[in-house]
C-alpha cells in the first residue's frame, strides 16, 4: 500500500490540488461562508495596514484639497449664500406639505413610525479583485455590527454586511453581483429589483413593459426583505430601452452613491417600523 502511495504520490497530490478548489466552490454555492479562525488571523494582520494606508492617503488628500478649496472660497461663499436663500424658501413650502401630510395620514387613520439606530464607520479598503465590489469598514462585532445589516450613506443605500470580525466588517455594495435591492420608482410607484453591473451602473430587473419608467426617475428602497429601510435613495434611471417584443424593458440605473469617493458609511444596527395611532402621530408632530 505504502509502495503504491509513494509510486503515485505525484498523481495523488495533483488530484488533491484539483479537488480542494472544486470542493471549496461547491460548498460555497450552497451556503455563503463566514470567517473561519484562520481567516480572522489573516484579517487581524492585514486590517491595521489597511487602516494606516487609508489614513495616510486621506490626510494627504485632505491637505491638498484644503489648499485648492481655499483658492475658490469667496466664489463658493457667494454661490452657497444664494443657494441657501432658495433652500429656505423651499423649506417653507415643505413645512406646509408636511402639515398636509399629517392631516391626510390622520384621515387614513395610520402613521408609520420608524425607530433606527446606527453606527458610523470608515471605509478602510476595497475588494482585492476589480471584478467584485465589496468594501471593508473599520467597525465590527464589538460595535454591534452583525451580518446582513443595511449600510447607507448620506447619498443613499450602500449595501449590506457580508461578514464580520471583532473590529472590521465586509460590506457587499449594491453594485456587486451578490446584491439585489427591491426598489420603487418614486414618481410612478413602479416596482423592480436593482442589480449591480459595473463600477457605476446597475440594472432594474423584473419591470413590466407597461411600467411607467422614464430617464431621470429616482428609485428608492421599498423596505421589502427587511434589510434596507424604506425610502432610501438607491439610484436614478439613466436609460430606458423598450424592445419591440417581449414583456419586460431594459432599464439602466446610475446609483445614488458615488462609490469611487465613498469614505464614511452608516451601519443601521437597529431598524423597525410599526404603525402608531394618529393621536400619537399628531402629538409627535407637535
Amino acid at each position: 500500500m505504502v509502495k503504491y502511495l509513494r509510486e503515485y504520490r505525484f498523481y495523488i497530490v495533483l488530484f488533491a490540488f484539483i479537488l480542494i478548489p472544486v470542493i471549496a466552490i461547491d460548498t460555497s454555492t450552497r451556503a455563503p461562508r463566514e470567517y473561519r479562525f484562520y481567516d480572522k488571523v489573516i484579517v487581524f494582520i492585514t486590517s491595521p495596514i489597511q487602516v494606516s494606508i487609508t489614513w495616510t492617503l486621506d490626510q494627504l488628500a485632505s491637505a491638498f484639497q484644503n489648499y485648492v478649496y481655499l483658492l475658490h472660497t469667496r466664489q463658493e461663499n457667494i454661490l452657497l449664500t444664494d443657494e441657501n436663500r432658495k433652500l429656505l424658501n423651499a423649506i417653507a413650502g415643505l413645512r406646509e406639505t408636511e402639515q398636509e401630510n399629517i392631516r391626510l395620514r390622520k384621515l387614513l387613520n395610520f402613521e408609520e413610525q420608524t425607530k433606527m439606530s446606527a453606527v458610523v464607520a470608515r471605509v478602510i479598503a476595497k475588494d482585492v479583485s476589480t471584478d467584485f465590489r465589496a468594501v471593508r469598514i473599520n467597525r465590527g462585532e464589538n460595535s454591534g455590527i452583525r451580518r446582513n445589516m443595511a449600510v447607507v450613506s448620506n447619498e443613499g443605500v450602500v449595501g449590506r454586511i457580508l461578514r464580520t470580525t471583532e473590529h472590521t466588517a465586509d460590506v457587499v455594495t449594491i453594485l456587486d453581483l451578490l446584491s439585489a435591492v427591491d426598489v420603487i420608482n418614486e414618481r410612478s410607484r413602479a416596482r423592480g429589483v436593482f442589480e449591480g453591473l459595473t463600477d457605476d451602473t446597475g440594472i432594474l430587473r423584473y419591470t413590466v413593459r407597461t411600467d411607467d419608467i422614464q430617464p431621470g426617475d429616482e428609485l428608492i428602497s421599498s423596505g421589502l426583505g427587511g434589510v434596507f429601510p424604506k425610502g432610501k435613495p438607491v439610484g436614478v434611471v439613466s436609460k430606458v430601452t423598450k424592445k419591440p417584443f417581449g414583456i419586460s424593458q431594459d432599464v439602466e440605473v446610475h446609483p445614488s452613491v458615488d462609490f469611487s469617493k465613498l469614505e464614511e458609511v452608516l451601519v443601521i444596527t437597529h431598524y423597525e417600523t410599526d404603525l402608531m395611532s394618529p393621536e400619537k402621530a399628531v402629538e409627535k408632530s407637535k
Partner: peptide, 21 residues
Amino acid sequence: TLIVAEIAETHTAAPSGLFMI
C-alpha cells in the same frame, strides 16, 4: 498557492473558491 488563494478570498466578495480555482 492554496494558502495565498485563501488570503485573497478573505479580502473579496467573490464566490468562495473562485480564487482557489
